[in-house]
Simulated scan of single mutants.
Amino acid sequence: MIRIGTSGWRYPEWRDGFYRGIPQRRWLGHLARHVGTIEINGSFYRLQPPSNYRKWAAETPDGFLFSVKGSRLITHHKRLRHIEDALQTFTSSLALGPKQGPILWQLPSTLRFDEPVLKDFLAALPPGRHAFEPRHESFRTDAYFSLLQQHNVAHVVSDAPTFPCIEAVTADFAYIRLHGHDELYISSYDDEQLDGWARKIRDWDRDTFVYFDNTMKGAAPDNAQKLAQRLDVPLASHT
């Protein structure tokens, strides 16, 4: 299973391009007919009520999957420490049903690898798929990879000009975030770059989630569809 999509969907910058002629209330459904998955970003900034998740699930085709970005209260404010209550509150709010994909845990760039802290955090995670995106070079270590492997948590392979791209596959699925290779959140991926990512995904030979986060000038939907074509990935609405 390979799912390719975008990080978020509420972008006014897409209004005159990908969303031309589409009212804002229909943006999610429109995008979901062109990609197989979407990352929910709003969950990072504030706790979403279960009714929001149910609404988003209802607006997407059968077979569609969402990834959900974990709360910044856990990753950025508590910095993975003393998170039991916050984690329970966050995970109990999720109401996507069968459309629930992995939970993404994105770390702040100032957070260094701390083996005991990460070990406790991974042990506290509820069942299901989880993906971990560090943004500090200190995570490029076998001790980090080994911990993720023990818990079947995917290391997020992130492509960006401002934080390290650590290529490692640590779980029975892979998770990729493409933030823009040359300009963060802006630059489009050209044919050669898309061909390169397609080769990596084929070589990894496992379930894979790919999210284009180069959203600021509208490249993400087009890049997602072009990568899906290279990998012969059908739309969720066609499954």
Rank of each mutant, 00 (worst) to 15 (best):
M1A: 13
R3I: 02
G5H: 01
Y11S: 00
D16Q: 14
D16M: 12
Y19Q: 05
R20W: 12
G21S: 12
Q24P: 07
R25Q: 14
A32N: 04
A32W: 03
R33D: 13
H34A: 12
T37W: 00
I38T: 02
S43E: 05
F44E: 01
F44Q: 01
Y45K: 09
Y45G: 09
Y45R: 05
R46Y: 11
Q48F: 10
P49N: 11
P50Y: 08
Y53D: 00
A58L: 09
T60R: 01
T60Y: 01
G63A: 06
S67R: 00
K69T: 06
K69N: 06
K69L: 06
S71V: 01
S71M: 07
S71F: 09
R72T: 09
R72F: 08
L73A: 12
I74F: 07
I74A: 01
T75M: 05
R79D: 05
I83F: 13
D85P: 08
D85T: 15
A86K: 01
A86S: 13
L87H: 08
Q88V: 13
F90S: 03
S93P: 02
L96G: 02
L96I: 06
L96V: 07
G97T: 07
K99I: 05
K99V: 04
W105N: 06
S109E: 15
T110V: 13
F113R: 04
D114W: 08
E115T: 12
V117D: 04
L118I: 09
L118Q: 04
K119Q: 15
F121I: 03
L125Q: 09
H130E: 02
H130I: 07
S138Q: 13
F139L: 04
R140Y: 11
D142Q: 13
F145R: 14
V153H: 00
V153S: 00
V156L: 05
D159M: 01
D159F: 00
D159H: 10
D159V: 10
A160F: 01
T162Q: 15
F163M: 07
A168G: 04
V169M: 11
V169I: 14
A171I: 03
F173M: 01
G180C: 02
E183M: 11
Y185N: 09
Y185D: 03
I186V: 14
I186K: 09
S188N: 13
S188Q: 10
Q193E: 15
L194S: 05
W197M: 01
R199Y: 08
I201D: 04
I201C: 08
R202W: 04
D205W: 04
T208D: 00
Y211W: 05
F212K: 02
N214P: 05
T215Q: 10
M216S: 15
A219D: 02
A220D: 00
D222C: 13
N223D: 15
N223E: 08
K226D: 12
A228R: 05
R230C: 10
R230E: 08
L231K: 08
V233H: 05
V233E: 06
P234F: 06
H238A: 15
T239N: 15
